[in-house]
Simulated assay, not measured.
Amino acid sequence: MEVINQSEKVIDRQLLTLTHLSQLLNYVTGCGGLIVPLILWLAQKDRVEGMDVHGKAIVNFQLSLLVYTLISIPAILLLGLGILALIGIGIIGFVLPIVNAIRSGNGEEPSYFLTIRFIP
């Protein structure tokens, strides 16, 4: 953790990386992948540089995954296409947080594709 100025925000890449990796709690708890990053973002967005951008990207991504999942459930009845969509959502929901955790550790901006911007 580097301090820019005493009155300025701090650069904490480890916390940003942890925030991205906390999305993987979805595979353990079911909904922790949205709640934990949301709490970290709201608590640290004024103190950690870049947390606002990363937090918004994470929450938008998790909400988008939720919407895509809700859409694909009725699509299961349509020739089973919803099952393929659920498999794709599961893979994307696992891989992209890991990729963006590495990017945040390197000081890069998050990049989640197919994300609906609920929070601008």
Rank of each mutant, 00 (worst) to 15 (best):
M1H: 12
V3Q: 15
V3S: 13
D12G: 04
D12R: 09
L15K: 10
L16R: 08
L16W: 05
T19Y: 00
H20V: 02
Q23A: 00
Q23I: 01
V28E: 08
G30P: 06
C31K: 15
G32V: 03
G32A: 04
L34P: 01
I35C: 00
P37N: 05
I39G: 06
W41N: 02
W41V: 02
W41P: 00
L42N: 15
L42Q: 10
D46Q: 15
D46R: 12
V48P: 00
V48Q: 03
H54I: 11
G55H: 08
A57F: 07
I58A: 02
I58K: 04
I58Q: 03
V59H: 05
N60G: 10
L65D: 06
Y68M: 13
T69A: 12
T69Y: 11
S72M: 11
S72Q: 06
I76C: 03
L77M: 14
L81S: 10
I83K: 06
G88F: 10
I89H: 05
G90D: 01
I91E: 04
I91V: 15
I91A: 14
I91Q: 08
I92M: 14
F94D: 11
L96Q: 14
P97M: 02
V99S: 10
V99A: 11
A101N: 02
A101H: 10
S104H: 04
G105W: 11
P110S: 00
F113W: 13
L114R: 12
L114P: 06
F118C: 05
